[in-house]
Simulated assay, not measured.
Amino acid sequence: MDELVGELIDTVAWVLIVDGRILCARPSGKEIFYIPGGKREAGESDEQTLVREIAEELTVALVTETVEPVGVYEAVDGTARVRMSCYRAEYRGQLTASSEIAEIAWFGYADRPHVPPVDQLLFDELHTAGALH
């Protein structure tokens, strides 16, 4: 990665694909969509962060015994380097945008320009694998 880039933003994300489309969320006050997830709090594992963030953002409970890694992606976004560790998991409950999420949407590969650079890497890989249409 470019040594001139500033801080590292280390995040985890939940990859949920249904019928060739991936779940994305747009936080309140932002124009861009993201793969749901977020930053860990002190002492949290990736799994703990994922479970907490998804409950906060989408009001569902991830089934912890089904959490499995998808991959780790890194990209420069502005002046920061973003690392996104992605996981799949089953869930319980009804997907609903919380107060911090303005909108949820199901994106296909054509929607790639509407997500940040690190998310675009995931889109590319999923599309190449035939999982994202």
Rank of each mutant, 00 (worst) to 15 (best):
E68D: 02
V67H: 05
G108N: 12
V51R: 00
V67S: 05
G37N: 11
R88V: 10
V70I: 14
K30P: 12
G93T: 07
K39R: 01
D119V: 09
A75I: 04
Y91F: 13
Q120L: 11
V67K: 08
F33E: 11
G71K: 10
V63L: 12
E47A: 15
G29R: 11
E56Y: 04
A102D: 15
G71P: 15
D111W: 01
E100W: 12
D111M: 06
R81Y: 03
I54W: 14
G37M: 04
T96I: 01
D46S: 14
E41W: 13
T64D: 00
M84G: 08
R92V: 15
I32K: 04
W106F: 06
A97R: 13
Y34S: 03
Y73V: 07
I32R: 10
A102L: 10
I101D: 10
I54N: 15
V70K: 04
V70N: 03
R81L: 04
T59A: 14
T128P: 01
Y34W: 10
Y109Q: 07
I54R: 14
W106A: 01
D111P: 14
T49C: 12
A75Y: 08
T79I: 04
R81W: 00
D46C: 14
P36Y: 10
V118K: 05
A102S: 15
F33S: 12
G43T: 01
S85I: 08
I104F: 12
V82M: 14
E90K: 00
I101C: 07
L121I: 07
A61D: 10
A80W: 00
Y109N: 11
S28L: 11
M84C: 13
L50I: 13
E65I: 04
V51L: 00
S85F: 07
A80I: 03
P116A: 06
P36Q: 09
P113H: 08
A75L: 09
E31C: 05
V67Y: 02
T96R: 15
G43V: 01
I54E: 15
V67T: 02
D77N: 05
E68Y: 04
I104G: 11
P117A: 10
S85Y: 05
V70C: 08
Y34P: 03
D119T: 12
R92F: 14
H127A: 11
A102V: 13
S98F: 07
T59F: 10
G38W: 03
D124F: 01
D46L: 10
D46Q: 10
D111G: 13
E44G: 06
A25I: 03
L122D: 07
E31R: 06
E56D: 14
A80L: 01
E41R: 15
G78L: 03
A80S: 06
E74H: 13
G108C: 13
G43W: 01
A25K: 06
P117S: 02
H114D: 08
F33G: 08
W106S: 03
V72L: 08
I32V: 12
V82E: 14
R112I: 11
R92W: 13
